[in-house]
Design a protein around this nucleic acid. Sequence first.
DNA 1: AAAGTGTTGTTGCAAATGCAACAGAAAGGG
DNA 2: CCCTTTCTGTTGCATTTGCAACAACACTTT
Lengths: 210, 210
Amino acid sequence: MILLENPLFAGISASELSQMEDCFQMERKTYREKEELPIGGKIGILLSGCISLNRLDIDGNLSMLEYMTEGGIFGAFFSLFADTSDLMVICEKACTVVFIDTFHITKRCHNACHHHTVVVENLLQLMTEKVQQLSEKVEILSHRSIREKLLCYFRMQSGKQGSVHFELPFSFSALASYLCVDRSAMTRELRKMKAEGLLEVNGRNICLYA
Amino acid sequence: MILLENPLFAGISASELSQMEDCFQMERKTYREKEELPIGGKIGILLSGCISLNRLDIDGNLSMLEYMTEGGIFGAFFSLFADTSDLMVICEKACTVVFIDTFHITKRCHNACHHHTVVVENLLQLMTEKVQQLSEKVEILSHRSIREKLLCYFRMQSGKQGSVHFELPFSFSALASYLCVDRSAMTRELRKMKAEGLLEVNGRNICLYA
DNA sequence: AAAGTGTTGTTGCAAATGCAACAGAAAGGG
DNA sequence: CCCTTTCTGTTGCATTTGCAACAACACTTT
């Protein structure tokens, strides 16, 4: 994937970007599977490959917080916890990353360049999306029963896809994990809901009546 | 509360701020209880009084998402959902608000003012904190049992206050509501945990042994 | 073809949880 | 001071849930 296609640079021309690459002192680096990547003070943009964001558990276990494919942005502004001390970014598939020091984004330069403004706008936009995405998850997880979680999630999907018919972007196993409930219990609840006529299921296609 | 004390303007002098008030065309408005405030395209800074952020439920009910006291920041960049169409900001106690059009924050001016840089840095910092705060809540709610949620929350508090002794910032009722569990069931679980020697409770002071 | 991997559906059972209801304690307001 | 509200602790009970285990199916790899 090309750097220019990254949402952080939406609305920026190729020539502006190459100018910015010098001005922002962007660094391009490659990593191999299982190598560790730095986090502090930089934004990382994943051009190819995959990485994971992990936290060192209190029991010493590594638990994966996020899995990212090409186009993903990580590091400063996006790291999920206050203390990055127990966070680790690990290369999952050989990857290429562009690093930008946060300093270059927040500082004002005397040129008042158009592209600089745009990057800050894009960054704010991306963070707003992150906030929204997390808020949605909180809203779903705030419900106490499996049924309520399912309905909440389904309504959101229905809203996003603009129809009572919509398609799961997940497998049902992954959905259970996303909703933080037991898969077999979720299947059981879905069966009940079908029986009550609340919805219909065909593979990953769902039709919501409630 | 004075505008200058707001975290958005941390590191900015009084003279810089008054200059900025003109340059950014900040508007100061007052509202009475139950009045509705605008959201779109602006940041609102709450100087005094209280507001609430509400969502119009699918069943037509208003559910409160956030309650904010003086110093709070709301609106663009902070609104929790993608479509602000069903969001409402309502004045809970007579309040004074300063509005800033987002345009003035993201645009580059030719002066490359120090204070402009600082405000953008502060804004990014505030949003980062919001992301962290939401991520923490997701992590807590991801656990399935009341005991695990409690332990997760207690460990975070213990970490933040830097000791196995720490104080709840909440009443226990509010804690149950924050963890999205039944209060009586939570009390029951706390009793068990005390019996097992996992922790001690004195009013809102907690000592965590696990 | 065979073996392996991941997804989905099912069930029994024990344990956890929510719910409702009640009562005493603590805090705040007039 | 009394009155009201909120917080806290308790219990019984029905329901929900997680867990473990198994089977059928699709798909990929060898």
